[in-house]
Amino acid sequence: MTNKDVLIKVVDLHKGFGDLKVLRNINQEIHQGEVVSIVGPSGSGKSTFLRCLNLMEIPDSGQVIFEGVDITDPSVNIDLHRRKIGMVFQHFNVFPHLTVMENITITPILELKTPKKQAEEEAMKLLKSVGLEEKANEYPRKLSGGQKQRLAIVRALAMNPDVMLFDEPTSALDPEMVKDVLDVIKALVDGGMTCVIVTHEMGFAKQVSDRVLFMDDGVIAEEGTPKQIFENPQNPRTIAFLSKVLY
């Protein structure tokens, strides 16, 4: 967290579904180049918080200021901002009717008007970086879970995002595939990408994060460096949670 530039600023964020209050009064700043992990019990609102950052969920109140623009303002064209915010989902959500190559190039070609040839060259570079260049012309049904997730990551990277959001990127994977995906994320982090990662992989969070947020019941109950959170948690709820997930 050497760079002080605030990339995403969240102010007084509230979000509920019907009567259920899922997020209450969240305030956060995510800095350029920072890696923030979000941990916490199931149902605590981690995904909802992450999805508010690119307006996949519309907050009930509060602001999400991305690169200086309040993207909760209904008059902003959210598509333009989402192109700068990559998102990776638990269930990959690769496009089954498109080849691996097309999965990556379709949005740059459609929305950024990147010439097809250039988009394909860039996609090929990305595929090489995650060891999928041989699969370029396959359909995703031929890929393993880990390969699908790596595809989903490079598909997001093809838009040249300024930040990547990960929602439990390895939770749906067979254990032997987890490492491949974490390695890709690790490489991104090492390359300086700003990342917000919801994860149950405590070891990984500890290793890559600059900061860890512990969410519980719709609030950020505790935050700090991985060392503070994992080795010396203060909040009893953090302690209780960690005692359940750490061996």
Partner: peptide, 14 residues
């Protein structure tokens, strides 16, 4: 699958 729309929209597709 709703995830398809989510993925596309999260990429900034209209």
């Amino acid at each position: 699958d709703k995830g398809q729309t989510e993925a596309a929209r999260s990429l900034g597709m209209t």
